[in-house]
Computed example of a mutant assay.
Amino acid sequence: MSMHFRDLTAQAAADGAISAEEILTLRGAGWADGQMDPEEAESLFLANEALRNPGPDWCDFFVEALSEFVVNTVEPHGYVDQLMGDELVSRIDRDGRVGTMTELELLVRVLEKALSVPDSLKAYALRQLEDIVLSGEGPTRAGVLDPKGINEVECRLLRRVIFAAGGDRPAAASRAEAEMLFRLKDATLYDVNAPEWDRLFVQGVGSYLLGFGGKEPLSRERAADLEAFMNRPGAGIGSFLRRMLGADVDAETSKGFSSLLSITPHTPDLDDEVEEAARLTESEELWLLDHIDADEELDPLEKALLQFIAEETGEEPLRS
């Protein structure tokens, strides 16, 4: 490890501050030999913990340097093994929580940068974000207790983690992630949430149920289809809710979704493989029924999700 690098990080830890010039020097010293070693990585963590008010220059450097170290140190490059994943969690975890926004950003960036990560690493990241939303405190709240709703920063981080390349289902939500989205929806249903939340819930759960992306990254065309649905005049969330909130939901609704899905479908052009995936299986429908029936209420986001499914499948879900 470069002595100059170690001296600079040690000085930053002692002073609780670091200048832009020092960060520039660290960039050169840290990659003088083309890679960062474990001692240099550790010194960055120690400095980050000591800095009182880290600025954007430091945050950018910290995340860039350590995400590169975590993802590309161990062969084969791009694959984070269990040992490295566990080491990252142990280094940033404080009493079960991520301590700073810089470390939370590092965690998310590793998931985005890596081709594959241990399931436990992604689960840890999602658990951190869920705990922040439910408790109302954490780095995304800037240290202020605010237990109401999901804010814009949290929506963006959740989206990045759920659709990260390194997860178990790249470009689509897994079952565990869809269940987490339902928990967050139920917990924040009557709070003031960021505008991005409605779209994230519908697209996230919809991608799990309809298999968008499957084992391959979502194509630009399919991503455009999803975005077009959410933005299309007359068929997006806003107009759908206006129609549904004025409709009667009778007792038959609890037995199936026919009254909700009797709309003119919009079926995009799909190739055979994707078209086959874009169907609700019996187990998927039972899963959906269980989650919608859990609170014995068909809320606005659940209505939007059903509309989305109906338009994408072009048919009613299977009945149990």
Rank of each mutant, 00 (worst) to 15 (best):
H77E: 15
E302M: 07
L318R: 13
D95Q: 14
K122A: 00
S262N: 14
G138R: 06
E316Q: 10
L189C: 03
D119Q: 11
V63W: 10
P54R: 13
L288D: 03
G206K: 00
L210I: 12
E68F: 05
K185A: 08
H291A: 02
W197K: 04
L286H: 09
M101R: 09
R156A: 14
T25R: 11
L241A: 06
S259V: 13
D198C: 03
S262V: 03
N193I: 04
L26F: 03
Q203P: 01
M230F: 11
R243Q: 14
T281Q: 05
G166I: 08
G78R: 05
V161G: 04
S135T: 12
Q11A: 13
P300Y: 02
G85W: 07
P76C: 06
D7Y: 13
I92M: 06
R6S: 14
E130F: 08
L157I: 09
L24K: 12
S283E: 14
G204Y: 04
G211C: 07
T253D: 08
A12W: 07
D168C: 06
E316A: 15
P56K: 09
T140E: 07
P170S: 03
T9R: 13
L270Y: 15
L288R: 00
A165P: 06
A251K: 12
A14K: 15
E282K: 10
S207F: 04
D146E: 13
A142D: 15
G314F: 07
E105L: 12
D295C: 02
T264E: 15
P76T: 12
T267A: 09
T267V: 15
L289S: 12
E64G: 15
E297I: 00
D186I: 05
E296F: 05
Y190L: 02
T253H: 14
F45P: 01
L107F: 07
A176W: 00
A50D: 05
L226C: 06
R97A: 13
T281I: 06
